[in-house]
Design a protein around this nucleic acid. Structure first.
Lengths: 250, 250
DNA sequence: CGGGTAGTTGAGAGCATTCAAGCTTTGTGG
DNA sequence: CCACAAAGCTTGAATGCTCTCAACTACCCG
């Protein structure tokens, strides 16, 4: 995390005496609560958590090459991860919504292999990785959850590896966004695109103009209604059909 | 593993009394030996290993949807993982050389999300995942190694996600193959392409004709010499330059 | 109101694909 | 041992999807 001044607990969420809370968005809470650990272990987990932020739009959370010490779950906002190549082209690797974990691909090299930037106002739960790994040896449920998260990310990364058309990739993008928002209790059919067309393009390996054109065509065909950053999925079925090939590999 | 009859230890490699060996290709051996664990823990690890195979060319190691119970390190040969979409197009997700681990992306769903097939004669080290995970709680070095392997695969999958030209992708493919062979003690500049042009194409998201054409062009420009499945890298520097953008994100 | 960023739309170009044909190697059976 | 088939590979020509370039519009914010 590049900005040390932000590593303070968020007011109102810090420890208050003997009580401790799990933030509802943290990816570890559910798994560990379910596993029925005793209170002391849960407290061990809890004290690892550091609520940091808010980061404002455009602010970096970490940069490529920064030493890796912690993973973080998004509490609110959207995070984009990306790398820049020698020609200055930006390659977006992923968007992270509330509840999702960033930094997992940094473990193998002990450095962040990409940049992470806030697309809007972002608050994170930060977990020291050495500490959570150590704790995981005492909490098999936590270890299992970490393995799962890592494994899931391998599959996610494979999403875009396939040889698909612009339409297929865009449909898959919209459907996965919808599912992820839906899983967090947001509307599955109406949501805000927190990223620019260019970001979407760099993520889907398209030109931003192509993103515009696909949006327009999808709208003309009645599949979506899009206006600036607001989007409504109007024909989910058709979108799912288009996305089918892309998503079956997850 | 789909073929139960192959789950026998390979003759000559099984336990012989009190002695136990690590097979040199197993990704876990080095890390765990280094960590200086006592003999009983190392034996625990060793008894988890099951040497299976050989699988012949074209034989499936697991299929999409098979229940996930084990990960496996390739001992010898090459494994291809792939999925097939609704139009019957094959999407190759990866090639696995000796020392590399397959099945890591199956953890999150408890099912293999893709097919794995032997490209030549393949022998594997199989590890029951529940067992190795349980052991990892007692061997932090092993847990760390598992985290690393998983994290590494996330990065690998991102390799092909970028928006790169056929030349860049092919160069990156050849360079990574070279590095991986080299890391295993094989020649870095002369090796056998154990996969077909079509497999390479499906992996790099190209048409097989394009793969042919790029090979020819690379050869005409003196970067490689390729004849059937035999390839020699003649101008590594130029290849690395081409691959630079693709590889910097790993 | 003006500047800047984001987004849209059109026209032309280019890279990769598709279609098609021919070549090479390998394996099989007469 | 040869013929033949099948699969893998190569090469050429034409099409097409997506990109690039360019101009224009809409919106936001000082």
């Amino acid at each position: 995390m590049s900005d040390a001044s932000r590593r303070r607990p968020v007011p109102g969420i810090a420890d208050d005496g003997d009580e401790f809370h799990f933030c509802s968005t943290c990816a570890f809470s559910a798994a560990c609560l379910e596993s029925g650990y005793d209170k002391s272990l849960l407290r061990d987990l809890h004290v690892l958590v550091e609520h940091i932020g808010p980061f404002h739009e455009g602010e970096h959370i970490f940069r490529e090459g920064d030493p890796f010490t912690a993973i973080a779950a998004v509490r609110s906002g959207t995070v984009k991860t990306y790398v820049t190549d020698h020609e200055g082209r930006e390659h977006v690797q992923g968007f992270f919504l509330p509840g999702e974990v960033i930094g997992l691909n940094a473990i193998s090299q002990a450095r962040y292999p990409s940049n992470a930037i806030a697309l809007d106002s972002v608050v994170l739960c930060r977990f020291s990785f050495p500490n959570i790994a150590a704790l995981a040896t005492r909490m098999p449920g936590l270890q299992q959850q970490l393995f799962k998260l890592l494994s899931l990310d391998i599959g996610k990364a494979a999403l875009l590896s396939g040889n698909f058309s612009a339409d297929e990739r865009m449909a898959a993008f919209l459907i996965t966004l919808s599912r992820r928002y839906s899983a967090r209790g947001f509307s599955p059919n109406r949501f805000l695109l927190t990223m620019t067309r260019t970001d979407i393009a760099n993520y889907l390996r398209l030109a931003s103009e192509t993103v515009s054109r696909v949006f327009r065509r999808f709208q003309d065909e009645g599949m979506i209604h899009v206006e600036r950053r607001e989007i409504e999925l109007k024909d989910r079925k058709q979108l799912e059909t288009l996305a089918e090939n892309v998503l079956r590999s997850i």
